[in-house]
Write a protein that binds this DNA or RNA. Structure first.
Lengths: 163, 163
DNA sequence: AATTTATGTCAATAAAGCTGACATATTTTC
DNA sequence: GAAAATATGTCAGCTTTATTGACATAAATT
């Protein structure tokens, strides 16, 4: 395999000029966002490691705590993952006593999800370092900026599709 | 103290009350940040899928473009991943003609990394939808808020350790 | 000459996602 | 009441992106 499989056969010349001064592309925020998120999830990751859980467990515990009684379908919609992906994580959390399932009172096919006391404690323990980090990031920020950050984060989300 | 000594002790009772009204924990920002990042990376993910690349390739292409001439060690430090993880991704990008390696002029053990023309084009194509998303999220924001968001994202990062 | 450093590579493993197929219980529709 | 749709569960296999450990090579430093 001596030939180039890539976009252009021939000799790719390396470019030495940096890419900083682009008017159209906001590389600064893109990078800031990457680093911010990387470090933001590192705190809970470190805690979860001890219990043998991962980031996926965190998300499930978080949303079930925030929204007790949500169904499996709700959770799939929120996390935008597949049923099979969720199944393994959810099973482990139920087996470990952090989450309970209750058949829906109206529709008994549904499994409504609730945190146990331990589940709630876990969610809090995971959120605590993240919350401290947020506090720290907001130090000295005006009320306007705080609201502005919320609006910004909100605006970064996909627009909801009509259905 | 007789009950619930651990997650598996006794009968875990489901809790039905939501967790919204906590003073100490900022669940709102935690959630906003999760959704914002999830959607933020979804655009490049969709583009990369067509080329058979993933999120890891994106990060490498991005940083090499931003910082042409950076070494493998620099990249490992930036991404906070292991040498072995980077190796596979980097090799694919080099084989596909997006990145080139040049032996360091001073220290010839080093491999300095440069984008090719295609590499630069790829980085731009990936950053473009993200940049549009950022623009949209900033719509109507004052200069103070824009600066505040940058300061917030910056503040979310780990403090650098002295070494 | 010996050691350290920068990088590469082989092998095995894990977490967390994916698709496809199929099963079960329950509700809704005809 | 039978048929279809829905909510969930599960089996099997695959992929991506990370991990650790071990070892190899070339070049720089001591």
């Amino acid at each position: 395999m001596s030939r180039q499989t890539g976009p252009k056969a021939g000799k790719p010349e390396p470019l030495a000029t940096p890419m900083e001064d682009t008017d159209i592309i906001d590389f600064e925020i893109i990078e800031l966002f990457f680093f911010a998120y990387r470090d933001f999830v590192s705190d809970p990751d470190a805690i979860l490691e001890k219990s043998g859980f991962g980031r996926a467990h965190h998300r499930v515990v978080h949303f079930v705590n925030r929204n007790p009684g949500m169904t499996v379908a709700d959770l799939l919609e929120t996390l935008k993952i597949t049923k099979q992906s969720l199944a393994r994580v959810l099973k482990q959390l139920i087996d470990s006593g952090y989450i309970r399932q209750v058949a829906g009172p109206e529709d008994r096919r549904q499994r409504k999800l609730y945190p146990t006391k331990s589940g709630r404690e876990l969610a809090l323990a995971l959120a605590e370092p993240q919350s401290r980090r947020i506090e720290r990031a907001f130090e000295g920020a005006s009320a306007e900026v705080r609201e502005g950050v919320k609006a910004f984060l909100s605006g970064m989300r996909d627009r909801q599709k009509a259905d």
